[in-house]
Amino acid sequence: MTTSSLTPTRDWWRIPQRYVPVLATLTLLLVMYGVGVSQYRAFSNIQVVFNVFIDNGFLLVVAVGMTFVILTGGIDLSVGSVVAMTAMMSASLLQGGVHPAAVLVVALLVGPTLGFLMGCVIHFFDIQPFIVTLAGMFFARGMCTFISKSSIPITDPFWTSMAQERIGDPKGNFVSISVLVAFAVVLVGAFVLAYTRLGRNVHAIGGNQQSALLMGLPVGQTKIAVYVISGLCSAIGGILLSFYTLSGAPLIAVGMELDVIAAVVIGGTVLTGGSGYVFGTVLGVLVLGVIKTLITFDGSLNSWWTKIVIGGLLFAFILLQRLIGIRKK
């Protein structure tokens, strides 16, 4: 008896199916960029790419957190509100004359704390993440108006310097501090997912929670951890947003959770969990950013087309995931 009969033969040239969605996103991104470059001369300017990052840095950070949550098979609807709450809280504390360092610390603690509480409810009481984070979303949005009913401007010198600092080459192309922060978050996120036990446990839980439990993995801790991570990323995203807008507004980032989820899905992460990459999420955010840029460049198209196109892409990628799922069976 040989074991070879148990081993399926494999075509070496075949792309493993787990990479198909990410490659599809990459292709889409390149095509869209190509279309942009061929249609508008100004599009080929490298600053256009940088601007996509500058405008979407906070989205990218939040999407990294969301990737963790979706990989476990969960979802976090509270991110938009937590972003807004963090920005509001920072603006309000700064207005009250609190030292910027202290503001940063407080702002970075609130999001994860809320995430921790949501994670605990999800894990200990076995309630669907969708409904718990919905409560979190209500709570954080309510806190925004509780802090102030109107927008609070930020005049703190540290914040303004962070907002205006340009890091660039001699030709005048530049990125903001926020972009560097976002890159740092992406790198840390990618490392944690690929090279730490926490990251692998996240994948395992998304693949089969029951198995993860029986293999003795710390399922509860990991599930709580992903909501803390998502809360932390939302908090960082909130601070970056306050750098970007230099204010805190109670109704900012409404519906942002949808953009984030769309970016993660377009980036190839499977919504049922277990499969996905932070790198894919970066591509997903870039796709969203390039769509917005293309629509801005076009001028004749209106902003609502962004939503329709994102919806269409969401449909296409969900269909792709579904087809791959069927083929696996």
């Binding site: 409810v121 309630i127 718990v132 209500f138 806190m143 108006t145």
Partner: peptide
């Protein structure tokens, strides 16, 4: 908007 705070409490209690 602040009523959302109460809704959050209701959601959690009901669930």
């Amino acid at each position: 908007q602040t009523s959302l705070l109460f809704k959050a409490v209701v959601v959690i209690i009901v669930c």
